[in-house]
Design a protein around this nucleic acid. Structure first.
Length: 250
DNA sequence: AACCAGGACGTGA
DNA sequence: TCACGTCATGGT
């Protein structure tokens, strides 16, 4: 049995930090709904115009009803794995390759030749490990028939760390679990809301303890943070120009 | 033409 | 626990 964290009682006295909600309002007003999680194909129209990558296609702003099919759900799961330390346009190429091969389903991924799988997802990088881990996810997903899953279960899968687990929960399974990525960490640190060495779960808690537990809010907030970070938090960017600094002081 | 992206894991202090 | 090396392609 694991020991209970003795600080839990302290944490439960959630001191509401209004800055968290203020930031959300600012970001939403600035950029509008982001339409995450992107899907290769929103409509069942047989994919007639698939050559463009990095396009707006796949996003569904203001529509939080996705995934609407198990195939879309599985596509989100694959995307969550493939996007690890990789830009989305690269992931989109990999997913399109799988779609063209007509293997973007759990059972087909399982039976697909590993070399073919690796070749298909090569644009997304780390293709050796990602191919193996995609198969793991496919097996897991196909054995998951409607029972509820836990975060711990996801974390037990090789290749699924905290961010990937939360992304899968939040977008593929519509469970309000806040996602913390590298961008989120940079923003939170720059605004002085947490220290450099803050752990994943601390940053996650910062948001979850100061927001209503609402699915679309969690989804939108994370997407907005990424959009904002792409503008102000590039690796060599000037974080001081971030307009949120104004909101965050006091 | 280096630098980096919507991380995770294995290893050794 | 923690810091660090490794995995890898392709865009800017």
């Amino acid at each position: 049995m694991e020991n209970k964290n003795q600080k839990i009682s302290t944490r439960n006295m959630r001191i509401n930090n209004p800055v968290i909600l203020k930031i959300y309002d600012f970001l939403l007003a600035s950029y509008g709904p982001q339409g995450w999680w992107p899907l290769i194909e929103l409509h069942e129209t047989g994919g007639t115009n698939p050559t463009k990558t990095g396009s707006i296609r796949g996003y569904h702003p203001g529509d939080y009803t996705y995934p609407q099919t198990e195939i879309q759900q599985f596509e989100m799961i694959c995307g969550a794995l493939l996007t690890q330390n990789t830009g989305w346009p690269q992931v989109e190429k990999a997913l399109l390759n799988l779609k063209y091969l007509n293997v973007l389903s759990p059972k087909k991924i399982i039976s697909l030749d590993s070399e073919t799988l690796k070749e298909a997802i090569k644009p997304a990088g780390y293709y050796n490990q990602k191919a193996e881990r995609l198969k793991t996810l496919a097996v897991w997903f196909s054995n998951l028939k409607g029972r509820n899953l836990t975060r711990e279960e996801l974390l037990s899968l090789k290749g699924v760390g905290p961010e990937t687990a939360d992304s899968i929960l939040l977008y593929a399974f519509k469970q309000p679990s806040f996602v913390v990525d590298a961008y989120t960490r940079r923003i939170v640190t720059n605004l002085g809301l947490k220290g450099e060495k803050a752990k994943y779960d601390e940053i996650k808690a910062l948001f979850e303890e100061n927001l209503p537990k609402d699915l679309s809010l969690y989804q939108e907030y994370h997407a907005l943070l990424v959009e904002h970070a792409k503008r102000y938090y590039k690796k060599n960017g000037n974080f001081a120009e971030c307009p949120l600094l104004e909101l965050a002081r006091n």
